[in-house]
Amino acid sequence: MGDFRLNHLIVHLIEKKQYEQEAHIKLRENVIRKTPSIEALAKDLAITYRKSTGKRYSKFKDDYEDENEKPKFKEFIDEYLENQTEDNFIKFSKKATRYLKEEMESKPQSVGGYLLFIDYTEIIKNRNYNFISVIMVKKEHTTKINDETLDIIDDEMVNFSKIEVGGFIDINKYREYQRKETNDTYISLLPKSRDLSDYFSRFMGAINFKRSDKENTENLINCIIYYPKFKELSKEEKDRVRKKAFDFIQEKRKKKEPIKIIELANHIYPEDPQDWINYIDSPENPFKIDSEIQSVNTRVLKKLKNLEIKDEGIDLKFDISLYGNKIELVENNSIIIRSLSDKSIKKLKELIDAYN
């Protein structure tokens, strides 16, 4: 994670027992005062969420026919984004909390807890990435919030490792989507169970988004290829990672088993698998993938091993590991192929003679 700046944080409380319909809310009237420990807490929450497995990616429903069908949460956040002041943040969080209460009352399985709204900025290479998160944590999972004042007791670090449900909105990507510069997802959701995900997705107005096998495979391959470049690994290490990834995915495909990203990370980066997972979820990586891919596109998968170029009657295909050794791109848009076997040269000459 890059440099972290907390903009606003507030805590509200929704009291609701499982399988009971009625819920009660307690709203805080002002934001949590920023201190070094509160800022560290907010950063820890963001990191904890990023490390969590089982996230789903989505975007707001925007194909409604009637204005009444417009997602309320989207309406609340759009109002806030017009002017991200402290007062507007408080208003946004209160409206959203009241609305979530209504959704929870329609879902008997839902359980109340502390609802944290966080507006923060991550600074990477002098670029600001803005995020807004809504996180629900059960009361029994932390004793460091005062129920009367909803203050966070900041003399000790609060352990929020068990996030019940949560939603993160990548504001930069959302604005790009609004400007029609991208069609990619900008919301990520973390449900602990399908029952919980239903009401929280409905609360956020997030559609049931599913990437195609082709898109998932392409994004996965890009994450495998670009991370070693991002980390400035050697060519030998890059080749090793690609081969290990290809073999792992092929084995899963043959067994008709899903590709779990955490398992793949442990296989190709056993020393530090979490760093690759963090990269996948980082703002710098534009290729988002599901935490579990049910099926891969075999044609696209081959890009992990082979580089293929077609240009004006030329069809060139070779193993990527050969680049820099037997194959090289030189000046004047030319490619040199070295050290072909005698057998291949003889065959090539025979064919050229036959055609000429």
Results as ranks from 00 to 15, higher is better:
Q294E: 06
L13M: 00
T53I: 15
D272F: 04
V137T: 12
D239H: 15
P191D: 15
N306P: 00
G167M: 12
D272W: 03
K144H: 14
V241R: 08
F168I: 11
D290E: 15
Y323Q: 06
F76T: 06
I10T: 06
F203E: 01
Y49R: 05
N88T: 11
I335P: 01
I152C: 09
K72L: 14
P36F: 09
R127K: 15
Y49N: 03
E232Y: 10
G112M: 04
S52G: 03
E29I: 00
K252C: 12
N172G: 12
I293E: 02
R33M: 09
L45H: 01
E284P: 04
L41M: 11
I320W: 01
D44T: 07
K144P: 00
N332C: 03
D87G: 07
I261K: 10
S193L: 09
N266K: 13
P283C: 02
F209P: 00
V165N: 03
P270V: 11
K125L: 11
A206I: 02
N332R: 10
G113S: 07
D184K: 15
I293S: 08
S291I: 00
E328F: 06
E308M: 03
K34W: 04
E75V: 14
I309P: 02
E312W: 00
S106P: 00
I259C: 02
I261G: 09
D275T: 14
D353T: 08
N172P: 12
D119G: 05
I309R: 05
R56L: 10
K91V: 12
Y129T: 04
F160T: 12
I259D: 06
I25S: 09
M136V: 14
E292R: 11
R179G: 08
I221Q: 02
A265T: 03
S193F: 07
N306T: 14
V300M: 14
E350P: 00
I337A: 09
P273N: 13
E69A: 13
P273W: 08
H24P: 00
K16S: 01
L115R: 03
R240A: 12
L304G: 04
L233G: 05
P191S: 14
F287Q: 01
S188D: 14
F89G: 08
H24R: 11
L264V: 04
E65W: 05
R240E: 09
N297K: 10
I293V: 02
L9P: 07
P270W: 07
L348H: 04
